[in-house]
Design a protein around this nucleic acid. Structure first.
Lengths: 340, 340
DNA sequence: GTGAAAGCGCTAACAG
DNA sequence: CTGTTAGCGCTTTCAC
């Protein structure tokens, strides 16, 4: 695999005329080595092109300096922001991040967790709270510091920092209701196996039902997570006379699809139909019309999760039962208006 | 860090009543162990909750099972697709991916490379070909398998698989020219320190100049990579009578900003002005109007890069001078039309 | 302040 | 087929 024999700590030691132990010390406890010696060692390191071997360090029960992150997919604006913030936060604490994706396959998630543990990650970040029993059991058995991101649930089994999706659902539903709409349609992703979508949907439905607004089956559209699918799925809503006055989408991408469908069918947003999303994705504020939605602040979630995981790792005594909810906020914009 | 003492290979061996070596064999060369013994060992592994220690394996010169990926940022739809495909491909070859982000800071990139090498990644994926001399030197000195993604250049110093951004620029410029436009404006990101943007711009300008179309300074707008900024930056183009008949944007996100700006200024796309992007991002086909652009196929790039890196790692003899250009393709859609 | 020596968890010969 | 032995590259006592 490597073409050249790589320098090891002994090469460096010989080069500097000291013992390997001194080189090791110079690297790990610089203050315990005479400045002069240290300088000589530093020079030898540069000349030999030596790079420390973390594996050899890790074997001494020392820290691996890695944390694992398991996400459904990278290819998704939802998580990009979150992951970036999580990564930044952990990097500033000196960790390198091992990332694995499972493509929404929870069996695979378990396998990946094992694989990450083989690499002796010092902590793990997960998305959501929907995991296999084996996954939870493995984490608990090993006592691996762990934090779940994105979804917030009161009685979550592991520390979680997330958005309160249920609350977000309630918020946007209330907003639509307050504008006077009663003929409301829902365009949501399949909720099974996706606790975020399920929570949002529950929030929306609870508020609507609480106001005695029922959603007929044919106005509860299911779609995939893509503008294209959402556009196609929503098109039937704009056919004929039985057109809703407002549409709540499960997220902003879907809302965008809905808006495109409306435009294509010559339905004006918001004059004919109000459209609301959830998420406030990048771009939602600058679409045309700009999208009324709920801001979820994924970067805050990622950052906070990073902080918590860092604390869990470095202070094992600390309370491992954080359940942090990052507040969300209604962003009232152009795509919704009062029902006349 | 860990609350409980974790089982090691010796615990498993005792538990199964065999020697550590047999456990190791059972894990690494299952065929060399009697099925019966193997089963007993498997049981012992489950009962003790043993998880292999990759660090201890890696120390034997064995493979670490990791590859590193250094990207400017995760928080960007451009790379999400690419990374996902790269990750998938490598995963299918049994690698776990270490990801680090440098936020467009090339000094940091070098540091991250070192850190990844400390973890003894077996190969490295980089974005673009703009790197510090030290970065290149380190890779060469170590003989670390390496592949650069996204940008394609004939004489690149390391294997690269990418989009030919120059060609993409040429393609879209030709398209606009063929539609009969001469009053053309450009809205591009700052090209310095961003070789992708620079290549695209060069391609566009070369074609335009070749057809004796000059772009006045005030029609070459610079913007940041965001719908919001692009919208604001492009707005002046639609003020007054001196309005271009076509606008070429450095990428689809910027094009989207331009279209929003036009809508807001009551300029019709494509009737008043044609707008073209580069990239064919998810959503571009389903916007309204759908966006004429050049499809870059980042997933192909990521996949191919994964294949090449895998080959470089597993077959050191193989030629390490691939320079693969993933073909791009003009996507003619609604946002551009013939100049009348 | 520095070196010698033991050993971390595991694997690869080498015997048996 | 399985156990014994000798390290891998490094860190950490324990002496000097």
């Amino acid at each position: 695999m490597k073409t050249v024999k790589q320098a090891d700590i002994i090469d460096v030691a010989n080069h500097a005329g000291v013992s390997p132990a001194t080189v090791s010390r110079s690297l790990n406890h610089p203050d315990k080595v005479k400045p002069d010696t240290r300088k000589r060692i530093q020079k030898a390191i540069e000349e030999t092109g030596y790079i420390r071997n973390r594996a050899a360090q890790a074997i001494h029960g020392r820290r691996s300096g890695t944390v694992g992150l398991i996400v459904p997919t990278l290819d998704n604006a939802i998580f990009a922001n979150l992951i970036q913030a999580f990564s930044d936060q952990l990097h500033s604490s000196g960790f390198t991040m091992l990332v694995a994706t499972h493509g929404y396959d929870l069996d695979r998630e378990y396998t990946l967790l094992r694989s990450l543990l083989e690499h002796r990650v010092e902590g793990v970040g997960l998305i959501g709270l929907d995991h296999k029993e084996e996954t939870y059991a493995l984490i608990e058995r090993r006592g691996t510091p762990c934090v779940s991101m994105w979804n917030y649930i009161d009685d979550a089994r592991i520390p979680c920092v997330g958005v309160d999706n249920y609350q977000a659902g309630r918020t946007i539903a209330k907003h639509v209701l307050e504008l006077g709409h009663k003929d409301i349609a829902l365009v949501f992703p399949e909720a099974r196996g996706n606790d975020r979508a399920q929570s949002r949907l529950n929030g929306v439905v609870d508020v609507l039902n609480g106001a005695h607004v029922e959603i007929p089956k044919d106005r509860h559209i299911k779609t995939l997570y893509s503008i294209k699918h959402a556009r196609e799925a929503a098109t039937p809503l704009f056919v004929g006379d039985y057109i809703p006055t407002a549409i709540i989408a499960g997220n902003d991408v879907i809302a965008q699809g809905v808006i495109h469908a409306a435009h294509a069918m010559n339905v004006s947003i918001p004059n004919d139909v109000s459209v609301a999303g959830i998420g406030d994705f990048s771009g939602s504020a600058h679409m045309f019309p700009s999208l009324s939605t709920v801001r979820l602040r994924p970067n805050k979630v990622g950052q906070m999760a990073g902080i918590i995981l860092d604390r869990l790792i470095n202070d094992p005594e600390s309370d491992a039962s954080d359940h942090i909810s990052i507040s969300s906020e209604l962003m009232k914009r152009e795509s919704t208006q009062i029902f006349r």
